[in-house]
Design a protein around this nucleic acid. Structure first.
Lengths: 146, 146
DNA sequence: TATATTGTTCAGTAATAACTGAACAATATG
DNA sequence: CATATTGTTCAGTTATTACTGAACAATATA
């Protein structure tokens, strides 16, 4: 007996919530994303709260986060005062960029430390350089795809 | 007036703690790593607790985490009962692998969902495929470097 | 053998982030 | 105008995770 499509959908939404957590996003934001991916339609603000069974406050912060990230877009329906939301054109590219920004930040910190260490401390600078190189490589890898 | 090397060191250690947090690791584990990178020498178990000003319990969990990850190695000094720790040969490669494993897990989840969705639900499967493709690309990018 | 040292475990606490829901401003609708 | 609806904010709560420190087993040393 195979699972019903409704169960598959529910489980997927929860799983995307967990994936989001592993990417340092709030779980509700992930579930919202999962919902929009699976259903592929626009949801109104209140429909989101209803579908995910969370407070309007949570929807508000999740949609502004995902909108800022470029994962979803706010749309409007004629004759309906509510905001509607749908997946944006390229929802996933953001995640590359997020990872890239984290890497850049770490890289910058390490580089600044290395520059601050006197030139004659060669071993320290060498170890910092190696650490830095890791992020250089990561940035390059992420850059090539996004 | 430039900062003293001691201050630069302290700040670096704290910064690596923050970088670690952004990579989903406990802050103390990051500070420990920062300490070993900067100083480039072996530290004993109790020296680590002293240097980072944390409990032995924290050192214990941090060293086992970092050891399991392959970031540090446990060593021994003749005539000293204590465990010593140093950066491993290739401490940074682990981070690629970590990211890779996260991506693989997400990829697997999405793929399983897609396979569970009936073939005639073409739009749903299509959207899942796109989501899956993101992780395929990420895996490829990470794979090329590590 | 007794005492000390070492590293682990785990129960309890602290710190942090997510989430709720009520208050609110803004706007619509009767 | 009054009432309802919408989305945001924020204070308070809940949930989660990190961290501490005491108890402990294992081993060393006197």
């Amino acid at each position: 007996m195979s699972r019903s499509i409704a169960v598959i959908r529910e489980e997927f939404i929860e799983q995307v919530g967990l994936i989001a957590q592993a990417e340092l996003l709030p779980r509700i934001a992930g579930r919202l994303m999962g919902l929009l991916i699976f259903d592929g339609k626009e949801y109104s603000f209140s429909e989101l709260a209803e579908a995910l069974q969370v407070s309007r406050g949570s929807i508000s912060s999740s949609v502004s986060l995902l909108t800022a990230m470029g994962v979803i877009e706010r749309t409007a329906k004629p004759g309906d005062r509510q905001d509607y939301f749908k997946l944006s054109e390229d929802p996933y590219n953001t995640f590359f960029q997020r990872a890239l920004r984290r890497a850049e930040k770490a890289h910058k910190t390490i580089q600044e430390t290395r520059n601050a260490v006197p030139k004659d401390k060669r071993e320290i600078r060498g170890r910092l350089k190696e650490y830095e190189n890791f992020y250089t490589a990561l940035m390059k890898a992420l850059d090539s795809t996004s």
